[in-house]
Design a protein around this nucleic acid. Structure first.
Lengths: 370, 370
DNA sequence: TTGAAAGCGCTAACAG
DNA sequence: CTGTTAGCGCTTTCAA
């Protein structure tokens, strides 16, 4: 099982390797006759280029690294990954997948490995530690973060959580709800090693508080539940929390007519609590979520604030690819015309993707006061 | 931004590249003093091995290709992918991700690209066409299929759908249900280009039919709905189908006390139909699913037959890795002792992973006859 | 115990 | 238009 090399093809066609290379990349002059011969030699021999050799020689791999924080099984991450893969594929890039499991050490090792493999760029679908992102940057590899920014020096593709949550509240308010509950996640420090970290829950909560205030509704602490996850049975954390917190809300604020949950997952938990109590959605209580991951699969289908996960992945990968492409063009230009206008650095841009309210069947007009 | 090569480290330590290579791989004799010097030279220079060059020289990449059939956003596929990545990582392999989008052409291109990149093995999370799997095999690369086998020459990691579905039926029967509905997917041809193909729905249906028969319950066609998906609004197909088929079942067989749905996704759709009719689960009707993907997130949590998705991915990757490892050991052994006992070929094994009934809250004793 | 040297398979000047 | 040639950065005999 001997590998067929370019040289073999050349011999078979009776030309030099340079010529074969030329016809493969259709670059440089090759007479029609020779091209013909080479092409059939390629076909006859079943030649398959050795990309490893090519990468070594060209000093680029046309590969993107994708570092996930572990929960590829979470629809959000998965959908982002699909977007990354799609963008990469469209530009001829392939994707090398790593999973940090939310562990900073594994994340560092992933980056190290990616750097050894000389990938052209790295996308973090929710980085765990900013310094690992910096590690890539220091090696001269463009890195892009998704969902939250941990490293100021890298561009990030995010969503305006405050705006999205505001829209959710607006929807509830417009439907006449005044007694609105909130089920949130804990606010963790940004560089904390565990998943929910984000600081994002806080933004969503603030939108809740501010929307109430703007509507002239006094803030009532008993209508809000947020705190640490109870240690749960598998899963990503959030489901059991949602159920438990919903139950608590039902006890401490039984008069609420709507709940805003911090994520679809938490909403799913809330649904379970409501279902077992025989409380009807949306007749007795309206529920609104965030993410649009589980939302379509719940009964009734959940009204939620959609994050454009695919687009976020797509955009992030595109940014990374653009960075390498620009860098090449840049150094080329540098060779050509010294003193050309300095290009603007889009390096540290914060790209906001728009959220969108998706109204389904879990929200309805507030019941009339009894 | 010049890359630091092995040669640079060697110069810095005042030794040859061979020696540096030796200390890096701790192989061959190196005096303690020299090792010391080299190690600090490596540290001081911030040397990072160029894996591409290494791969070219060693003629192996320590990389696995993972070809998905498109729906990475489907929890089943995602979970399998996590298993693959985990197994790979544990053995020092990395994973190159491709997405065929269920398109045979893209699948072929993915395999071609993977072969060019000289991956050591390929895992198909649900191959689309057997001949694409064969393509890898022909190139001498071990390939493993997951979920269904399209290529006889490759090992596959699957589940006994008939047994799993039988267990589900047994559960329902034990709970006293006699009037049991079935919501299925269409039976498509194996080499059909579209997703649900599988032939798997058929096995699950047959288990349903046979279980009824074994229990002495006459088969009633009106309690069964299966057929082509209505063309739907995004998603993977199954949700809307589940809802529509459940409604149909409610009309044509209003006396059923339980339904077996062919997947959790279809069950989710069924839940929606039931919810909007105000029919209580499991008080009025029991529902059981298959997969254990969405099951935990539904209200009430769905009783289902779990497929060990992570394990399937893990096992498949392990098989692929074992195949390359064996091949190496094999040829080494061949060099050493000609005429050694011929190793058994596990190449075409069909690995069955066990399903498991997970009882949650969607199934209960059949209501007493009125 | 260490070094010199010959490539792995491909590309890209530079000649012709 | 085509061929020659010098490597890309690393590993690995073979000698010393």
């Amino acid at each position: 099982m001997q590998e067929i090399r370019l040289k073999d093809v050349a011999a078979l066609a009776g030309v030099s390797t340079a010529t074969v290379s030329r016809v493969i990349h259709s670059n440089g002059y090759v007479s029609a006759g020779v091209r013909e011969r080479v092409e059939s030699a390629i076909r006859d021999s079943g030649y398959r280029m050795n990309a490893v050799a090519q990468e070594l020689r060209r000093r680029k791999t046309i590969t993107l690294g994708l570092v996930l924080h572990g929960a590829l099984s979470h629809p959000f991450v998965a959908e982002v990954a699909v977007g990354v893969e799609q963008a990469a594929a469209e530009q001829g890039f392939t994707v090398l997948l790593f999973n940090s499991q939310g562990d900073p050490d594994r994340e560092r090792e992933s980056v190290e490995e990616l750097l050894k493999r000389r990938v052209d760029g790295i996308v973090f679908t929710t980085a765990v530690q900013g310094k690992n992102v910096q590690l890539a940057l220091d090696a001269g590899i463009p890195a892009v973060e998704i969902e939250r920014r941990l490293c100021d020096a890298a561009p990030a593709v995010v969503v305006d959580n405050y705006a999205g949550a505001s829209e959710a509240m607006q929807h509830l308010l417009t439907l006449g709800h005044r007694k609105i509950g909130f089920i949130g996640e804990p606010f963790l420090d940004d560089e904390a090693p565990r998943l929910p970290a984000l600081g994002i829950p806080r933004e969503r909560f603030e939108a809740y508080r501010d929307a109430l205030h703007a509507a002239g509704i006094p803030f009532d602490e008993s209508r809000v539940v947020l705190g640490p996850y109870p240690r749960e049975l598998g899963g990503w954390g959030g489901l059991e929390t949602g159920a438990a917190y919903m139950r608590r809300l039902l006890t401490q604020a039984p008069d609420i007519t709507a709940v805003f949950t911090v994520s679809d997952l938490v909403a799913a938990g809330a649904y379970q609590a409501l279902y077992s109590r025989g409380i009807l959605i949306p007749r007795q209580i309206s529920v609104i979520g965030f993410d649009d991951t589980f939302a379509p699969y719940l009964a009734p289908p959940l009204t939620t604030v959609r994050q454009p996960m695919f687009d976020m992945g797509f955009k992030a990968a595109s940014l990374a690819i653009a960075a390498v492409t620009d860098a090449e063009a840049g150094s080329a230009a540098l060779d050509a015309t010294v003193g050309s206008p300095v290009s603007t650095s889009p390096g540290t841009a914060l790209e906001f993707c728009p959220t969108r309210l998706v109204v389904r069947e879990s929200t309805a007009r507030a019941p009339a006061e009894p």
